[in-house]
Design a protein around this nucleic acid. Structure first.
Length: 417
RNA sequence: CGGGGCGUAGUGUAACGGCUAACAUGCUCGUUUUGGGUACGAGUGACUCCGGGUUCGAAUCCCGGCGCCCCGACCA
């Protein structure tokens, strides 16, 4: 794609209404647009990154034999009243709205009730279980205080997976599989060395839930980490007894700031019992369905990667989620340079469409810093100087290492080395 | 929801209660320049967030809204 076909502009100055690094950089590079506090739109480039993240998540969900579906954001109060989660005194972050006839509706902040209620029409027998379903869905949470850019918004896209099992043992086994799968996801988006499996409050459902916390100063959570075991415990449940129970050495944990990029729960039979989702077993007796729910905030994950990887010059995307693998920069507004850049662009496009031609007029410095800000992993700089020698400069955005290659090397060889 | 800060061209900032609201950047048209946001010239662009009030006179002071940021609380 040619950069000139995008409408977004790269800004030199940070917007004054953003203090967090992720929002500043994503906004300056034209990946996001702020609509209002805690509400962001994804611009074309941001959408590609988001889709790349989602595809990694999707692939891993599918590997669990989970099926993707898509539920409505609008929620029927009736089912939420059954589980006592409609009342604002119980759940204080609802966005509620009304039909023309004054009937109340909610905008979903999660979907346990909706999915459980839906499955009542599909689950009857032990033969119907287990069921694993997930979706990517915009959640709405009426936060008192949105903050840190995409880290805590009022509307955000979440992958939520729900499991429905015959027995507690089945549910727990699946929970463990999800735990492993989540670690694979975070590894694939580039956060392997940052993410800690973290014990946290299980709320009303169980003793613990498992959070996936990415170490970052931008995080709003505090966790105590065991660096060897790659396990942590959230400050909210941190105590000597708790550490002993979890097999952690209370005196050897280090406190760190972290971003919660995922959270998984064993829900037991709380929702299925309340909403009467049951199945008939082999002995023709009615049984409770065992549930779990598993979330990943897509925007938050993207922002976390942006925050962690960025350097002084701007964004740095890991290859796995970068909007493009290669950006070609014609350094001078010189006909010959532009021509060569375009030729190279056309040739690479045929092999790998993940290439961007930065065909914007401007000074040398402007082009180089723009390319840096975009965060695309590999830059190919086409310059007068290079053309004299018949070579192009290949620059790694992250390591800043520079190599020189001929047109033939680039088109016939493997760019990745 | 408690506390603090802020609201001025598209963007980032300035302006003692007093000239036609300034500077930078962006954008348009020239000329120039080309290895880290190039230089010059000419243009363009603002009911100073909204509503009241004080005053001869308000971007500036006061009151009330709304919005944005930060700290805290909250976060099934």
């Amino acid at each position: 794609m040619k950069y000139s076909s995008y409408f977004s502009k790269i800004k030199k100055e940070a917007p004054k209404d953003e203090a967090s690094r992720n929002a500043q950089l994503l906004s300056m590079a034209g990946y996001i647009h702020k609509e209002m506090a805690g509400v962001y739109s994804l611009l074309p480039l941001g959408l590609v990154v988001s889709e790349n993240v989602k595809n990694i998540v999707r692939k891993n969900m599918n590997s669990l034999s989970a099926h993707e579906l898509h539920m409505s954001a609008l929620q029927n109060p009736e089912i939420w009243k059954v589980t006592n989660r409609w009342d604002d005194a119980v759940v204080d972050n609802w966005f509620k709205t009304k039909l023309k006839n004054d009937t109340e509706l909610g905008l979903g902040f999660t979907h346990e009730e909706a999915v459980t209620s839906m499955l009542k029409q599909h689950v009857y027998s032990y033969a119907d279980l287990p069921i694993y379903v997930y979706q990517f869905q915009n959640k709405f949470r009426n936060e008192l205080r949105a903050k840190s850019g995409l880290m805590r918004g009022r509307e955000f896209e979440m992958k939520d997976l729900y499991s429905f099992c015959k027995t507690e043992a089945d549910q727990k086994a699946f929970f463990e599989k999800v735990k492993e799968t989540y670690l694979k996801i975070f590894k694939e988006v580039g956060l392997e060395e940052y993410v800690y499996t973290t014990y946290a409050s299980g709320g009303v459902f169980s003793k613990f839930s498992i959070e996936f916390q990415a170490i970052s100063e931008a995080g709003e959570d505090s966790i105590y980490v065991d660096e060897k075991k790659k396990i942590a415990i959230n400050k909210e449940i941190y105590s000597k007894e708790m550490c002993e129970e979890l097999g952690l050495d209370f005196d050897n944990l280090i406190e760190k700031k972290a971003v919660e990029v995922g959270n998984i729960f064993n829900l037991g039979t709380k929702y299925s019992d309340a909403l009467e989702l049951t199945y008939t077993d082999e002995k023709n007796t009615k049984q409770s369905v065992w549930m779990g729910s598993y979330g990943i905030g897509i925007g938050r994950l993207m922002a976390t990667v942006a925050e962690i990887y960025a350097d002084d010059a701007g964004l740095v995307w890991p290859k796995e989620i970068a909007p493009y693998q290669v950006v070609i920069v014609p350094l001078q507004d010189d006909p010959e340079v532009k021509d060569e850049a375009e030729k190279l662009y056309n040739s690479i496009s045929k092999i790998d469409p993940s290439v961007l031609l930065y065909d914007v007029k401007g000074s040398v410095g402007e082009k180089l810093s723009s390319a840096d800000m975009l965060g695309i992993p590999t830059q190919i700089i086409v310059s007068k100087r290079g053309l004299i020698e018949g070579k192009f400069e290949i620059r790694d955005r992250k390591t800043k290492k520079v190599t020189y290659k001929t047109f033939f090397d680039i088109v016939e060889g493997d760019l990745k080395d």
